[in-house]
Amino acid sequence: MNHRTSTLFALFIAALWAWWELDLKFVDLFPTKGGAQIARDFFSAAWRPAIDYQSEFVPQGAPPFLWIVLQGMLRTIYFATAAMTLAVVVGVPLSALGSRLVPSWVRIPVRILVGGMRSVHELLWAIFFLAAIGFNSGAAVIALAIPYAGTLAKIGAEMLDETSDRAYHAMRGLGTGKLMAFIAGLLPQATPDLAGYAFYRFECAIRSSAVLGFFGYETAGYYLKSSFENLHYQEVWTWLYAFVLLVLFLEAWSGQLRRRFVA
C-alpha cells in the first residue's frame, strides 16, 4: 500500500469511527411528519421563487419585494467589501512579514499571530464583539476582517515564498534597500496570484456577511431567516437564487480577469 492509499484509508477509518461515535443512521435522513411537510413545501417552492411579498398583509407604502432583495444583497456586498478592504490592508503587510525574506525573530511571531487570527471563526469573533461592545455594524466588519486578514497573510506568505527571488537579490546586490527591493522586485511578480486569491476570498466574504444576518445585521441572511420562519418558502428561494446569480456573476468576472492577466 503506498502512502496515498494509506492516507485515504486512514481518513476512511476515521470517518467510520466518527459515524459510529455520532450514532448516525440513514433512517434519520428521512424527515418525520412535521419535517416532511416542511421539506415538501420548501422544495416544491423551488420552481416558483417569489417576485412579490408572500404575506397577504403588506403594510401600505412598503417598497416592492424585489427592491428589498436588491437592497439586502447590496448591503451584503458592502459588509464584504469593507471587511475585505481591512483584510487586504492588514493581511498583505503581514504576509510580507511572514515570508522567508524576513529574519526569523520577526517571521515566527508574525506567523503565530496569523495562526491565532485564523483559528477563531469570523462568527465567533462576531459574537465576541457582540458581547464586548454590543450590536454595531463596524464591529461586525472587524470580526469578519480578522480571520480573513489572517488567511490572506498565510496564503500570501506562501505565495511570496514560491515567487522567484532573483530580481529581489539582484536589486539588493545593486544597493537597493530591503523595502524597495521587496516592493519593486518581489511584489509585482506575486501580484496576479495575490489578486486572484483576494478575489476568491471576496466571494467567501460575501457568504460570511450573508450569514452575519442571522445575528441581526441586515444582510441577506436576516431576510432569509425571517422569510423561512414565516413559512414564506418562495421568498427564501428568491434569496437563494439571488445569491447564486451573484456568485455566477463574480465567477464570470474573475474568469475574465484571470484570462487577461495570464494572456
Partner: peptide, 27 residues
Amino acid sequence: IFMRAIPEYVWAFLFLAMLGLGAWPAI
C-alpha cells in the same frame, strides 16, 4: 455552483427545520 454558493450555515438552518435536532443537518 448552486451547492457552494449557499453558505453552509444557511444549508444547516434549512435542514434543521426538516430533520430536527441531531448531527445530520450539520453533516
